[in-house]
């Protein structure tokens, strides 16, 4: 169908296809979790599926495909994996702390209001 895919040996094509399906599947399951899980602190676990397993699968698939097609090692996709590995923990940690801070200050405001009404 696509001309540049035909140059690949079938074994490599199967490997790339398997990696793609695993990566995209894990990302989709993570997104479904983002939609289905009931509380914020549970939902914060869902995108890590896409950023660890999902990104690893798709980036490795791309690396294998371009290495075999070009006949030389193509590793520049590793930069994406490296970048995502570095940035995701930072954003998730900041979001977790922000959520905790907001929940606590809201609970405190609620308690103050209840105390005032009780007086």
């Amino acid at each position: 169908m696509k001309t540049h895919f035909e140059a690949l040996p079938p074994a490599v094509a199967l490997l790339v296809a398997a990696l793609l399906v695993i990566g995209a599947g894990l990302t989709l399951i993570g997104a479904v979790g983002l939609l289905r899980l009931p509380t914020f602190y549970e939902r914060i676990h869902a995108p890590t599926l896409g950023t660890s397993g999902g990104t690893a699968g798709i980036v490795t698939a791309s690396m294998v495909l371009f290495s075999v097609l070009a006949g030389r090692l193509a590793v520049h996709e590793l930069l994406i994996g490296f970048f995502v590995t570095i940035t995701t923990p930072v954003t998730l940690m900041l979001l977790g702390r922000a959520a905790l801070y907001r929940d606590r200050s809201e609970a405190k405001a609620e308690a103050d209001r209840a105390a005032r009404e009780a007086e």
């Binding site: 169908m1 001309t3 490599v12 296809a17 793609l20 983002l34």
Partner: peptide, 25 residues
């Protein structure tokens, strides 16, 4: 042969990723 396998797996992965994006949106 390998062209067909790869074409459908790439398109399938893209469909799954678009569905994931729809969930996030």
């Amino acid at each position: 042969m390998s062209g067909t396998i790869l074409y459908y797996s790439v398109v399938g992965a893209q469909v799954a990723l678009v569905a994931a994006m729809a969930c996030a949106v």
